[in-house]
């Protein structure tokens, strides 16, 4: 297992976990390898790693290093 930070919280993921795994674990939703909800529809979530946006197309190929700091954002009421 490795530990990474998701939105400031420490979470445990298996070795070689990718961003898809981290997002699926945080949202408690099953995702396709392309980072879309397995049950269809749109996910509505973006990911940044070390202050850089990771495009959804790169989620599956981005293997997380231990201690990686991920931010998951979505739409909320405001503005």
């Amino acid at each position: 297992m490795i530990t990474v930070s998701v939105n400031g919280k420490t979470v445990e993921l298996q070795e070689d976990a990718t961003i898809v795994d981290a997002v699926a674990s945080t949202l408690e939703r099953e995702l396709t390898p392309e980072g879309r909800p397995a049950d269809g529809g749109r996910l509505g979530v973006a990911v940044s790693l070390a202050d850089a946006v990771v495009p959804r197309s790169a989620w599956q190929s981005t293997v997380l290093a231990p201690g990686a700091e991920l931010e998951l954002v979505t739409a909320v009421q405001g503005g």
Partner: peptide
Amino acid sequence: VALRRYSPETKT
């Protein structure tokens, strides 16, 4: 809409 950290309470 605004963009904020995902929270388990409000989800998406």
